[in-house]
């Protein structure tokens, strides 16, 4: 296991590279879902307001 973590002496480069890429993948999921949630919330507010007007 420690040999695996050591990555043949390249641990300081391999693991940060994987970490950055995983972070970008996860952030993309979070950002996309957040932007959809925000847009849905705004749309719901508008429909509710329009419903009260009529």
């Amino acid at each position: 296991m420690s040999a695996f973590l050591d990555m043949g002496g390249y641990a300081a480069f391999v693991w940060p590279a994987y970490l950055v890429t995983l972070a970008v993948l996860v952030l993309n999921i979070i950002w996309a879902r957040k932007s959809l949630a925000r847009a849905l919330q705004a749309a719901r507010r508008r429909t509710a307001a329009a419903g009260e007007d009529s």
Binding site: A32, S35, R46
Partner: peptide, 21 residues
């Protein structure tokens, strides 16, 4: 997912949004 958010923002005046929601 992002395209849906974009469409909702751009079509905010459209009636179909209220119907879909």
């Amino acid at each position: 997912v992002r395209v849906r958010a974009e469409i909702l923002q751009r079509e905010r005046a459209a009636r179909w949004i209220g119907e879909t929601l």
